Simulated assay, not measured.
Amino acid sequence: MRFTRSACTLIASAAVVLGAAAAGAQEHTLRIQTHHSAESTVGEAAAQFFDDVETMSGGRIVFEPFYSSSVVKSVETFDAVLNGILDADLTAGSYQTGKDTAFQFVGDPMGGYDTPWQLYAFVYVGGGLEEARELYASFGMHLVGFHIAASESLASTRPLAGVADLQGFKFRSPPGMETMIFAKLGASPIVMDFTEVFTALEAGLIEGADMANLDVNRSAGLHDVAKHATYPGFHSTPANHFAIRQDVWDAMSEDLQRIVEVGHQKFAFRLTLTGSVATEEAARQLEAEGVTLHDWSVEDRAAYRKAALASWDEFADSDAARELVQMHKDFIEVIGLAGAE
């Protein structure tokens, strides 16, 4: 078979392109740490995310994951990325409130939203992602996006049917803004490590705990002791982040950046769907085991949100934090959530 000169040129050009593509394999190896275990719901979803990106990029991006904070402590992941020990952070923005309280309002705007999808709407429709990216960029990081497993539930040894039941309620709380919110409503939040919660519940030192979502709380055995829970959760909807050091991100071609963004968004939304099913299954199992689930009324949720928004104003002590607070408040009004006044 004889080829024309133009056909030969085309074949040669194609060979060059294919050769360049082959040479471009494994252009980027990203060392990434997450605080979740490989066997957890988030860990398994993350592994699928890594595989998706590696496949869609034709092997030009390869992940080297470190689960269960095996390189540095969870709260140190962000700085480990900045210092070049790691390349990417799959933990939580709220760990970085010591740098800027604005991270609280990208990591967990407590009391702002009733469902993960409402928070996603703020991120992707209400301008939240763009504002958060400016915050991350100021610290030398590129924020790819957020992912949410499920809203959290309070576990309790006594009924928590509404705001009135929070009076004198002694419970495990994370440090920071949450203690401010619940103190306003008459509760007695006690800051303690996760590892101390079960023993403290058994000994009666606390009456409940804010630990995680209903499925995780059940798996941890909290409801062997605590026979009450708030569900569906509403008081806290933590959004974990995926952030990459800015120079690593800038070194990627535009097509690879888009692959990472789309792959992460699939991971995020699938994780939330999985979390929704898992918490519903946990709810049915717990009810069958005699645990009472308390779905707060619109009025009680509004009272909690009012206390939360007042605490937002007190907690926000930077321009970035105050800007995010105002954006959240404006968006809450747009979507018509009770207590947004």
Rank of each mutant, 00 (worst) to 15 (best):
R245A: 13
L256W: 10
R305G: 13
E281R: 04
S57Q: 03
V334G: 02
S173T: 14
G127S: 05
G208C: 12
A278M: 14
A23G: 08
F66G: 08
R270V: 12
V225Q: 09
S151R: 05
E280F: 09
D224Q: 14
E131Q: 05
E287R: 13
K99A: 06
E299G: 08
I332G: 09
T272W: 00
D255C: 10
N83D: 14
A288Q: 13
W117A: 00
G145V: 01
F49S: 08
H28R: 07
E131L: 07
S6W: 09
I61R: 13
H228R: 11
F169C: 03
T101I: 02
K184D: 10
G84P: 08
E281N: 14
F139W: 04
A121I: 00
F269D: 10
G107E: 06
A340K: 03
A283N: 07
A21R: 11
S94I: 05
N213L: 10
L273M: 04
G263L: 03
E333A: 13
R158I: 15
V334M: 11
V216H: 09
N240G: 08
D255T: 10
G98S: 08
I332D: 12
A302E: 11
R301K: 15
V216A: 14
T41W: 02
L271R: 01
A283Q: 08
V197D: 04
P174Y: 05
S68F: 10
T230S: 15
G162Y: 10
Q326K: 05
Y304C: 10
N213H: 15
K170F: 03
A243Q: 04
W249F: 02
A25G: 13
F267M: 09
S94C: 02
A137F: 01
T115G: 04
P109H: 01
A239Y: 00
E44F: 00
E27P: 06
A220F: 15
C8W: 04
R158M: 10
T101G: 03
L256F: 14
A155D: 12
Q104Y: 00
A164N: 14
M141V: 02
V72W: 01
A92S: 05
